[in-house]
């Protein structure tokens, strides 16, 4: 199975959530949010020093834009626009450089968006 056919996908889930795999340098619409993956790489966690796959997301909401450094398991509270769960971060290939980087060498982020905020807010 060729990995070169990896691509950004957004699919609805039966419980009303939306699931997405977003390739690095691309973006996707999840509900009212537009999510772009600015980078995805293995880097040291600022708090623990542990090296993990981390991503920088660009989040565009109707009234604002923001960037977020995330790792798998993180949740972003989008306020009235729901909750974003970071399921997976796959690092981009550090040996490939530039905008012509093929899909197979780009990292990706797996996300689940739910329109209804979790009671008690983000974790």
């Amino acid at each position: 199975m060729t990995d070169a056919r990896r691509r950004t996908l957004v699919v609805p889930a039966e419980d009303g959530a939306v699931e997405a795999l977003i390739l690095q340098s691309t973006q996707a619409r999840l509900g009212p949010a537009r999510i772009g993956v600015m980078s995805a790489r293995t880097a040291a966690d600022p708090a623990t020093g542990r090296r993990r796959a981390r991503a920088r997301l660009h989040v565009t909401l109707p009234e604002s834009t923001s960037t977020h450094d995330v790792t798998a398991g993180d949740r972003l509270d989008l306020g009235p626009h729901g909750l974003l769960h970071v399921v997976e971060v796959r690092p981009q290939d550090p040996g490939v450089d530039g905008p012509e980087t093929p899909s197979s060498a780009r990292g990706h982020v797996g996300l689940i968006w739910r329109g209804e905020p979790t009671p008690g807010g983000a974790e």
Binding site: Q24, S25, V96, G98, P99, T101, R106
Partner: peptide, 17 residues
């Protein structure tokens, strides 16, 4: 085209690659 690097970016946050 931007770099594939997390080196010092001089305070600017661009999309890589």
């Amino acid at each position: 085209g931007t770099e594939n690097s997390d080196a010092d970016r001089e305070g600017v946050s661009l999309v890589e690659n």
